[in-house]
C-alpha cells in the first residue's frame, strides 16, 4: 500500500490479510490462492503488509476491550492515512470487526468478505473457471462460519461461488441460520475447551462426513483449523479434504 501511495496510485480494493492469513502456514496458502485469483482477474489491489495489525476481534470477544480498542484505533489511523475506502478480507472475524465495529471508533469503510468479492468477480465475468481441475460430479459441502452467516447474514455468496465450480453441493443437516459453530469463535481458538463430553469440531465433522462429500469448503481461518483437525481425528485425511473457497476457485483455474 505504501508503494502505491508513493506512486500516487489508488487501488480498487485493499486486501486485509489478517493474522492467520499472514502467519498460519495452512492459511497462508489461502492468502496466496486469493492473490493469484486477484492477479489473474486484473484487480488492482493493495495490502498493508507489515503495517497491518490484528483487528482486535479475539481480544474483544474474550472481554479485553482495552487491547481491542488499542489495535482498532491504530488500524484506523493506518487505513485513514492511506485513504482506504474498500476492503476485502478472507477472515469472517476481521470482516465483522472492520465492517460493524470500526465505525463506532471512527473507521468507516466498505467491507466485503472474499466470498462476496469472488462472487462479484465471477458474476462480472472477471473470473472464469477454466483451465484447471474439473469439479463436475464431486460432492462438496459448505460449512457456514458464524461470523459470516448468523453474524452478518451472508449465506448465499459462498454457495454461489461453489456453484460456479459445477460441483455437487450437498448441505449438512445444520446449515445456514442453523449452522453449527466449528468451536473456535469467541476466543476459543486461543484456549483449551472447557470440560465437556466432546469437542465441538468433532460434533461438526461427524455431520460433515455424513454428507458423503469428499471436500469440505470453509471460508474462515478458524473453521479451517477446526475442520482439518476434525478430519484428522476421524482419520479421513486421505479421502476428505478441507479447502477454502479461494483455493477451490484457484484449483479450478489451474492457478
Amino acid at each position: 500500500m505504501a508503494e502505491m501511495a508513493a506512486n500516487n496510485e489508488t487501488p480498487e480494493v485493499l486486501f486485509w490479510v489478517g493474522c492467520a492469513g499472514s502467519f498460519d502456514d495452512r492459511y497462508k496458502k489461502v492468502t496466496v490462492a486469493f492473490v493469484k485469483i486477484l492477479n489473474s482477474a486484473g484487480v488492482k489491489f493493495a495490502v498493508l503488509g507489515t503495517e497491518e495489525s490484528c483487528t482486535g476481534d479475539p481480544a474483544r470477544r474474550a472481554g479485553n476491550e482495552f487491547t481491542f480498542q488499542m489495535l482498532a484505533m491504530s488500524n484506523i489511523q493506518v487505513l485513514d492515512m492511506y485513504n482506504v475506502k474498500k476492503i476485502v478480507t478472507a477472515c469472517p472475524h476481521c470482516f465483522n470487526t472492520l465492517k460493524n465495529e470500526y465505525p463506532a471508533l471512527g473507521g468507516n469503510y466498505e467491507v466485503l468478505h472474499h466470498s462476496e468479492y469472488l462472487q462479484q468477480l465471477i458474476d462480472a465475468g472477471r473470473v472464469r473457471l477454466q483451465g484447471g481441475e474439473a469439479f463436475k460430479g464431486r460432492k462438496i459441502t459448505f460449512h457456514d462460519s458464524c461470523y459470516l452467516g448468523r453474524a452478518n447474514d451472508v449465506y448465499e455468496a459462498p454457495r454461489h461461488v461453489l456453484e460456479a465450480l459445477d460441483a455437487d453441493l450437498v448441505e449438512m443437516k445444520r446449515c445456514r441460520t442453523k449452522g453449527l459453530c466449528c468451536g473456535a469463535g469467541g476466543g476459543q481458538m486461543f484456549k483449551e475447551p472447557e470440560p465437556g463430553k466432546k469437542d465441538v469440531n468433532i460434533e461438526r465433522i461427524e455431520e460433515a462426513l455424513q454428507t458423503g462429500a469428499d471436500t469440505i469448503a470453509v471460508a474462515c481461518p478458524f473453521c479451517m483449523v477446526m475442520m482439518t483437525d476434525g478430519v484428522k481425528n476421524k482419520e479421513k485425511e486421505q479421502s476428505v479434504k478441507v479447502y477454502d473457497l479461494a483455493e477451490l476457485i484457484a484449483q479450478a483455474k489451474g492457478l
Binding site: 448468523r150 469463535g185 475447551p193
Partner: peptide
C-alpha cells in the same frame, strides 16, 4: 465455554 456463535440469539 461460549463460542459467541449467535446460535442462541438466532
Amino acid at each position: 465455554a461460549c463460542t459467541t456463535c449467535n446460535a442462541c440469539v438466532q
